[in-house]
Amino acid sequence: KELVLVLYDYQEKSPREVTVKKGDILTLLNSTNKDAWKVEVDDRQGFIPAAYLKKL
Rank of each mutant, 00 (worst) to 15 (best):
residue 50 A to Y: 03
residue 48 I to H: 02
residue 11 Q to N: 13
residue 45 Q to W: 10
residue 51 A to T: 11
residue 3 L to H: 09
residue 42 D to N: 14
residue 2 E to Y: 11
residue 15 P to H: 10
residue 36 A to N: 12
residue 33 N to V: 06
residue 26 L to N: 01
residue 53 L to E: 04
residue 29 L to G: 01
residue 36 A to R: 14
residue 26 L to S: 02
residue 41 V to N: 08
residue 45 Q to M: 10
residue 29 L to Q: 02
residue 47 F to T: 08
residue 55 K to G: 05
residue 47 F to C: 12
residue 19 T to Y: 03
residue 46 G to S: 06
residue 18 V to S: 02
residue 22 K to G: 05
residue 30 N to M: 08
residue 17 E to V: 05
residue 20 V to D: 00
residue 49 P to R: 03
residue 26 L to R: 02
residue 21 K to R: 13
residue 43 D to S: 12
residue 12 E to A: 15
residue 31 S to I: 05
residue 49 P to I: 06
residue 10 Y to R: 02
residue 24 D to V: 06
residue 19 T to C: 06
residue 43 D to M: 09
residue 49 P to W: 06
residue 27 T to A: 08
residue 26 L to A: 07
residue 22 K to P: 02
residue 29 L to P: 00
residue 51 A to F: 13
residue 52 Y to K: 06
residue 50 A to L: 04
residue 37 W to A: 01
residue 22 K to V: 06
residue 15 P to M: 09
residue 14 S to Y: 10
residue 43 D to N: 14
residue 45 Q to G: 05
residue 10 Y to H: 04
residue 51 A to H: 14
residue 11 Q to L: 12
residue 48 I to K: 00
residue 53 L to N: 00
residue 8 Y to N: 11
residue 47 F to W: 15
residue 35 D to H: 14
residue 11 Q to Y: 14
residue 49 P to G: 03
residue 18 V to A: 04
residue 7 L to V: 06
residue 22 K to N: 03
residue 21 K to L: 06
residue 36 A to M: 15
residue 39 V to T: 00
residue 15 P to N: 10
residue 22 K to S: 08
residue 23 G to H: 04
residue 42 D to H: 12
residue 29 L to E: 02
residue 3 L to Y: 14
residue 53 L to G: 03
residue 3 L to I: 07
residue 17 E to W: 09
residue 39 V to A: 02
residue 2 E to N: 12
residue 33 N to R: 12
residue 4 V to S: 01
residue 9 D to G: 04
residue 41 V to P: 01
residue 1 K to F: 12
residue 16 R to H: 14
residue 37 W to Q: 00
residue 29 L to S: 03
residue 37 W to C: 04
residue 31 S to N: 07
residue 23 G to P: 00
residue 50 A to N: 06
residue 25 I to C: 06
residue 29 L to A: 03
residue 2 E to A: 11
residue 9 D to S: 07
residue 2 E to D: 12
residue 47 F to R: 03
residue 27 T to P: 09
residue 37 W to I: 02
residue 10 Y to P: 02
residue 32 T to Q: 13
residue 8 Y to M: 15
residue 46 G to Y: 15
residue 56 L to M: 10
residue 4 V to C: 11
residue 3 L to F: 14
residue 40 E to K: 10
residue 21 K to F: 09
residue 51 A to Q: 13
residue 32 T to W: 09
residue 25 I to H: 02
residue 37 W to R: 00
residue 38 K to Q: 14
residue 1 K to H: 13
residue 16 R to I: 13
residue 9 D to E: 04
residue 4 V to H: 00
residue 20 V to G: 03
residue 13 K to V: 08
residue 49 P to Q: 03
residue 21 K to V: 06
residue 12 E to R: 13
residue 39 V to H: 01
residue 5 L to T: 04
residue 55 K to F: 08
residue 25 I to V: 11
residue 2 E to W: 12
residue 10 Y to W: 06
residue 11 Q to R: 10
residue 34 K to Q: 12
residue 38 K to N: 06
residue 44 R to V: 08
residue 34 K to S: 13
residue 30 N to V: 08
residue 39 V to P: 01
residue 39 V to R: 00
residue 28 L to F: 03
residue 42 D to R: 12
residue 29 L to W: 03
residue 21 K to H: 11
residue 22 K to Q: 11
residue 42 D to M: 12
residue 49 P to D: 06
residue 38 K to E: 15
residue 28 L to M: 03
residue 14 S to M: 07
residue 39 V to W: 02
residue 13 K to C: 09
residue 55 K to D: 05
residue 5 L to S: 03
residue 49 P to V: 05
residue 16 R to T: 14
residue 53 L to A: 05
residue 19 T to V: 04
residue 48 I to A: 05
residue 3 L to A: 05
residue 8 Y to Q: 14
residue 3 L to P: 02
residue 55 K to P: 09
residue 45 Q to Y: 08
residue 56 L to W: 07
residue 3 L to D: 02
residue 28 L to I: 04
residue 6 V to A: 07
residue 22 K to A: 13
residue 31 S to M: 07
residue 3 L to T: 08
residue 13 K to N: 09
residue 51 A to N: 13
residue 10 Y to E: 01
residue 45 Q to I: 14
residue 9 D to L: 03
residue 41 V to L: 12
residue 25 I to Y: 04
residue 54 K to P: 05
residue 26 L to V: 13
residue 26 L to E: 00
residue 27 T to D: 04
residue 49 P to M: 04
residue 50 A to C: 10
residue 54 K to I: 12
residue 13 K to F: 08
residue 45 Q to L: 07
residue 38 K to W: 15
residue 17 E to H: 09
residue 3 L to R: 11
residue 31 S to G: 10
residue 37 W to M: 02
residue 28 L to Q: 01
residue 17 E to D: 07
residue 53 L to Q: 00
residue 49 P to K: 05
residue 14 S to Q: 08
residue 55 K to H: 08
residue 18 V to Q: 02
residue 39 V to L: 02
residue 43 D to V: 07
residue 12 E to T: 11
residue 33 N to F: 11
residue 50 A to M: 06
residue 12 E to V: 09
residue 41 V to H: 09
residue 40 E to R: 10
residue 20 V to R: 00
residue 47 F to H: 06
residue 56 L to P: 00
residue 43 D to A: 10
residue 44 R to K: 11
residue 12 E to H: 09
residue 4 V to P: 00
